[in-house]
Design a protein around this nucleic acid. Structure first.
Lengths: 117, 117
DNA sequence: ATATTTTACTACGACAGACGTAGTACGACA
DNA sequence: TGTCGTACTACGTCTGTCGTAGTAAAATAT
């Protein structure tokens, strides 16, 4: 069973998080579940990776946090909202992705489906 | 000008090198030029990255080195040859790439060509 | 009523790969 | 004779990921 190595995904954790935040502000636990769902279970982000991404991105001004006190919605949480800088960063990353894909694919041989392995 | 960040490519430097070694054994300087050419100038691997990839892959048994003494071909060089383990690793990485692509693309919005940025 | 699981984090340290800087050395070419 | 291209090695820094551990409140099970 092939698994996605973290070295590959490394450059895209932030992008994935920002993509989800484009729709609405959210918080760690929720985002991790959404990433798992959207990737069809193929990628599960580690908690520490996720939370360190938050603080890095907040430091860089890509997201802003606010605390939602415990109440109807559940328990106390720290929500993150994407900023304009975050949206720009996200768009840049999407462009970069297209470029990266082009480049990497010059070096990839897709196997024929001859069942020969 | 968008550049490919090393965090993205991180997981594929070894793969790119192995791809080129599938055809024939080669050495650092030559490979770096081939990577630049094949990527259409979009990716230039750093020397230190390349040579540390060699030693890592040799340690892992993905490549074997041999020295070509100075002579007709040019000056003394260390060539690398891909091994069977290297070929397997390469194939795994290609499969992994397909998976990774699928996953990442769930989180990428390709811009419409409305010239709006 | 109490125990366990799920939710929602924080802290800390280790590790791997990329990269900056520097330096060596040989050959070609001007 | 000097500079440029070739062909490396060594060393230390940085960044992002991840393992481990711990806290604590809410939800659920027993």
């Amino acid at each position: 069973m092939i698994e996605i190595s973290s070295d590959v995904i490394r450059g895209y954790n932030d992008t994935m998080i920002l993509f989800l935040l484009l729709k609405e502000p959210s918080y760690g636990y929720e985002l991790s579940k959404q990433i798992k769902t959207l990737s069809d279970g193929k990628y599960v982000i580690k908690e520490t990776t996720l939370y360190s991404a938050f603080s890095r991105m907040e430091k860089n001004g890509y997201v802003e946090s606010f605390v939602m006190e415990a109440g109807e919605g559940g328990k106390k949480r720290t929500y993150y909202r994407i900023t304009d800088a975050g949206r720009n960063y996200y768009n840049d990353k999407c462009e970069e992705w297209l470029l990266t894909k082009e480049v990497v694919e010059q070096f990839i041989m897709e196997e024929n489906s001859d069942g020969n392995n």
